[in-house]
């Protein structure tokens, strides 16, 4: 048996193979990039679905029923479970790296001049944490209904949950509109750096493609921002309660 063959047969156990990668700073970076892309794709789908609020009330109400009954309700939970797994991996890695990075410079500089980075990149951890806080509120607002059970429990003429009226009522409240718009600023800031730097993180750097892909990422981040703030802002302007 050759030396190489001996190595292959006595290969690393799975835990060490995966653990070594997950605990390394480059591995953490790759995991953050990939889970970030999943969450980013979700944001696009989430926005496209939500824009149905600007159609007749039946559109978003039947869309909600469609999501809840797809695959006898299993699809919704499969997607939710995957998204939660990505979210926790992303946040967990982010917090771990933030702690490691803080420890890597125990004595701060008296004076620092940044030459190339952007505020969005420097505020990545902060925008991420604020975004997470907003997410917890948002889920309790429109998914569990704990924030406003009365409008969450509204039914339409066909006996379905009246998502249309629930959203309209929520965004007739200027305070809530401010919360949602400010939260979208954090999302935008977070995406601005994330979508542009994801390629470098997974080892893709090309003189032509990287700037093109980063530019597309930033443009999509802007579109997501504009689309997401359009919902509360337009509803507030045209009048919340139909």
């Amino acid at each position: 048996m050759s030396e190489g063959e001996r190595v292959v047969r006595g290969a690393l156990p799975f835990s060490r193979l995966v653990g070594g990668f997950v605990m390394s700073s480059v591995g953490a970076k790759v995991i953050m990039a990939l889970t970030g892309v999943v969450l980013w794709l979700f944001l696009i789908g989430h926005l496209v679905g939500n824009l149905q609020i600007f159609q007749v009330p039946d559109a978003i109400n039947s869309y909600a029923v469609f999501l809840h009954t797809l695959g006898h309700g299993a699809a919704l939970w499969a997607v939710r479970a995957s998204l939660l797994a990505c979210l926790f991996a992303h946040v967990g890695m982010g917090l771990r790296l933030a702690a490691l990075n803080r420890a890597a410079r125990p004595v701060a500089y008296a004076k620092t001049r940044r030459l190339r980075t952007s505020p969005a990149a420097l505020w990545m951890a902060a925008s991420g944490v604020l975004l997470f806080v907003f997410l917890v509120f948002h889920l309790n607002h429109f998914t569990t209904g704990m924030f406003d059970p009365a409008s969450f429990g509204l039914k339409d003429a066909e006996g379905r949950q009246d998502v249309y009226r629930m959203v309209r009522i929520a965004f007739s409240n200027p305070g809530l509109v401010v919360v949602y718009v400010v939260a979208q600023l954090f999302v935008f800031s977070h995406l601005l750096h994330g979508t542009a730097s994801v390629w470098q993180s997974i080892g893709v750097n090309h003189p032509v493609w990287t700037p093109v892909l980063s530019g597309m990422g930033r443009s999509l981040a802007l579109l997501i921002f504009l689309g997401n703030i359009a919902i509360p802002v337009i509803i507030l302007i045209v009048g919340g309660r139909p």
């Binding site: 700073s25 990075n101 890597a104 470098q200 750097n205």
Partner: peptide, 26 residues
């Protein structure tokens, strides 16, 4: 520390080492 793609290193490098090398290493 861990790299977060700020590229301050690239700007500060007196020998202008490009960020490409990091993508290769990853």
């Amino acid at each position: 520390g861990a790299c977060r793609n700020h590229f301050e290193c690239e700007a500060a490098c007196p020998k202008d080492i490009p960020r490409r090398v990091m993508a290769e290493a990853y």
